[in-house]
Nucleic acid binder design. Structure first.
Lengths: 118, 118
DNA sequence: CAGCATCCTCTACGATACTG
DNA sequence: CAGTATCGTAGAGGATGCTG
């Protein structure tokens, strides 16, 4: 999605703001993984093989900026870094649950509709 | 956002499916407008000036395919078309409410964080 | 007025190579 | 192992002109 600016939609800016935070091809996946506990970058990459390292770092940085992910670095060799959800991030993932339910209820319909359309 | 395929994320595909439906710069806005009642294309364009006609039609077509918008055409001159939400679309907009609340709770934090980051 | 076709731009994503 | 830098690509979004 083209990144939605916070000022683009006056009336619905709450939703727009939330979406701008989870906007990107992988952020929802990362949110979901981190919901189950802290992860190291290597773990994340292994669990999401199609996610390149550049994009992973980029996504994590943005999520950190937006206050939903916490980054903790241990200064040892080899380098060790751990990512976890903040309170806000956890709250966000909870709020996503109803959306997930709706999605599951529509999976069949969607698959059918899009097959017919193509 | 790069369009999320329904098969890209196994575990979170419910959320992914829902997001794929509201994915695009304007669909959430359209959903919000249509929630208050049926609209004609011209009305939508007037209420969202920065939305071009091509993109509007495109978005509405996709939303129609995904079963959240209903299109009704009256064969008169001049042409008349009315768009409205389906039951599914209405359900989706309801489900978006908690997300909106989360977003509103983070607007200040987000604006601050992103200003600092840039 | 509703909608389609064309061209163009911009950027998120991806692949690769490299540093501490 | 974590992270950065560079280059290339595909597709969403935008501007404009045309049709019934």
């Amino acid at each position: 999605m083209a990144r939605i600016g916070l000022d683009d939609h006056e009336g619905i800016c709450g939703v727009a703001a939330a979406i701008s935070v989870i906007d990107g091809k992988w952020k929802t996946t990362l949110l979901w993984l981190l919901e189950s506990g802290p992860h190291r970058p290597g773990e994340l990459r292994r669990k999401v093989p199609r996610l390149s390292e550049k994009v992973l770092t980029q996504a994590l940085r943005e999520m950190e900026e937006d206050g939903i992910v916490h980054r903790e670095t241990h200064d040892v060799v080899p380098l060790k870094t751990v990512y976890s959800l903040t309170e806000q991030g956890l709250a966000l993932s909870k709020v996503l649950a109803p959306l997930s339910d709706w999605g599951h209820g529509h999976l069949d319909w969607l698959a059918e509709a899009r097959r017919a359309a193509s």
